[in-house]
């Protein structure tokens, strides 16, 4: 499966390696992730699909370092380093980007001002000089155009009063500017009309590259019509229960998640195959 793909041509770098990841909600101890195994190599786009409550967002949150979760077993390696040991900002500076399902509104902080601070934090970490306001504006010009970010939107406070589509465009715009190695897109299609979806998907596709890996988390197959994944995983009850190529997404669209869940007992074996 994904293992074969990775080694078939040249030896692509392993970007993300999740091994037997268990995580629970800190407050009430509810276990959400019950042993996730997943390997993503540079250049690959993986999709994780699953019904509500399967643990999709928890996986995104744990990978980005959000508070409120406790990892009880397993490990996550990012470019060979222990990702879970890093503070959220270090993950970002090391090249991990999370596109939020619900981007946060930040009144009083101008979009471009914030993004330049963010880019400079990343550049500093990589030993690069800070970028000044003029060079920054030049750098973002093309990327803003790609995501149809009008000047007015760039000057406004981060996400404040943005429509659902504008917020998601802003997420992908930030991703384009920060140039991450691993992008985790959490329900990027939720709340988007068809036009906004097209713009966002165009932006994401433009950012596909042999050096970058993407993990696309989605409930619906709709987004995957625009962003064709190399590998599709199905998450149910905190485990990856099925892994396949993009046709798996179409199958899910036709048959629904019930079909996978009905396979029940197959879950454990599939996950084991994916790991191997």
């Amino acid at each position: 499966m994904n293992g074969e793909r990775g080694t078939s041509e040249k030896k692509e770098m392993t970007m993300l390696q999740i091994e037997n990841l268990h995580a629970r909600i800190q407050d009430d101890g509810t276990e959400i992730l019950k042993g996730i195994d997943l390997t993503i190599r540079a250049g690959e786009v993986h999709a994780i699909m699953g019904p509500n409550g399967s643990g999709k967002s928890t996986l995104a949150h744990v990978l980005s370092g959000r508070d409120g979760y406790e990892v009880t077993a397993g490990r996550v390696l990012y470019q060979g380093k222990d990702l879970l040991a890093m503070a959220p900002e270090i993950r970002a500076r090391e090249g991990v980007f999370l596109s939020f399902q619900y981007p946060v509104e930040i009144p009083g902080v101008a979009n471009t001002y914030f993004l330049r601070m963010s880019l400079n934090a990343v550049r500093k970490h990589r030993g690069l000089p800070e970028i000044d306001a003029m060079d920054f504006m030049e750098l973002i010009e093309g990327k803003a155009k790609l995501l149809e970010m009008e000047d007015a939107l760039m000057a406004r406070s981060v996400n404040e009063g943005f429509s659902g589509g504008e917020k998601k465009r802003n997420e992908i715009f930030q991703m384009a500017v920060l140039d991450p190695k691993l992008a985790i897109l959490d329900e990027t299609d939720s709340g988007l009309d068809i036009d906004a979806l097209r713009v966002v998907a165009t932006g994401i596709n433009a950012l596909r590259s042999p050096e970058r890996a993407m993990l696309v988390i989605t409930h619906y197959q709709r987004l995957l019509n625009y962003i064709e994944p190399d590998v599709v995983h199905v998450l149910a009850d905190g485990r990856i229960v099925k892994t396949g190529d993009r046709t798996l997404a179409h199958l899910l669209e036709e048959k629904g998640y019930g079909w996978i869940e009905a396979e029940g007992a197959a879950a454990g074996t599939t996950a084991a195959v994916a790991k191997g």
Binding site: S64, A92, V104, Q174
Partner: peptide, 9 residues
């Protein structure tokens, strides 16, 4: 968290 996830300390 949003700001930190974008690299700010």
């Amino acid at each position: 968290f949003y700001l930190r996830s974008r690299g700010l300390s």
